[in-house]
């Protein structure tokens, strides 16, 4: 399976140019964060990827097919920033409708599993009008997962969620990555992006100003500061291996004063690219 591929994407509204040539790849099993100031074009990019907007120039392919291809839509999940639907419908009825639209096998069974997964089994009988913002976000997440999508587009999925809800979304994203889904996460919450994304793209004035890898496929990059001020940078396979590396340095006679996971300073990059 190929992932999401964007080449030379340009989009303008009348005289206003919003996207000025975006190149982007999201591979299966990769979570890519999209951050940038308001008006940078994040929502426009997401809308183009979902086939809601038609690009003026450039090419978007998802698994080598056009973005608005119906079989591709069946494999795509989308969480909007604000979930809106007929407020009289119950959570269960809403999810059943979404499952039938997506032509899921055993829709009722899938709906019940998802309601349990997003902690809304108890509230499934309630109409959406009685749902809090956080509950709407969670049911929005559930409808996006209804067909076990290969491509997941999330627009501010943690907005309005309490800490439990944020952790739930984080777990779900990790599960989706593990399953092999290509995920694009649009978020203003830099800490959240840093925790869940493999790579982050900084969008500014219609262009990808910077791309930063947060997790390397080969392991976790760490920086060990020694007593004399020297910094040893290396990549370890997993968190347990960090202790092993520190022990090895101490046994060789070096004094270790600090061990940190080496990560990009998203705040700093955000400021410099905005």
């Amino acid at each position: 399976m190929s992932g999401v591929r964007v080449r030379g994407l340009r989009k303008s509204f009348a005289a206003q140019q919003v996207l000025l040539g975006i190149d982007l790849d999201i591979n299966p099993g990769e979570v890519v964060g999209l951050i940038g100031p308001n008006g940078a074009g994040k929502t426009t990019l997401m809308s183009c990827l979902l086939g809601f907007l038609f690009p003026n120039e450039g090419e978007i392919t998802i698994d080598d097919r056009p973005a608005d291809d119906l079989p591709i839509r069946a494999r795509t999940g989308f969480v909007p920033e604000r979930m809106n639907f007929d407020r009289r419908a119950t959570g269960r009825a809403f999810l059943r409708y979404m499952a039938r639209l997506t032509r899921v096998d055993n829709p009722d069974d899938r709906v019940e599993r998802l309601l349990a997964r997003v902690d809304l089994a108890q509230a499934a009988k309630k109409p959406l009008s009685q749902y809090s913002r956080g509950m709407l976000q969670r049911i929005g997440m559930a409808q996006a997962l209804i067909a076990e999508p290969d491509f997941l587009f999330l627009d501010e999925p943690t907005s309005g969620l309490d800490p439990n809800g944020v952790m739930l979304v984080r777990e779900i994203i990790a599960e989706e990555r593990q399953r092999g889904a290509a995920v694009l996460l649009n978020s203003h919450q830099l800490a959240e992006v840093e925790r869940v994304c493999d790579r982050v793209l900084f969008l500014s004035k219609g262009l990808i100003a910077q791309s930063e890898t947060l997790r390397h496929a080969e392991g976790i990059p760490i920086a060990i500061t020694l007593l004399g001020g020297e910094i040893v940078r290396l990549t370890v396979a997993n968190e347990e291996a960090i202790a092993g590396e520190v022990r090895r340095l101490v046994e060789s006679g070096a004094g270790v004063i600090d061990v940190r996971r080496q990560s990009a300073d998203l705040e700093q990059i955000f400021r410099s690219t905005s």
């Binding site: 839509r73 989308f78 809106n84």
Partner: peptide, 14 residues
């Protein structure tokens, strides 16, 4: 206007 249309059109619906 409410965003329901976008939610539906993100599904495999012609």
């Amino acid at each position: 206007s409410s965003g329901t249309l976008q939610l539906v059109l993100a599904k495999p619906v012609n």
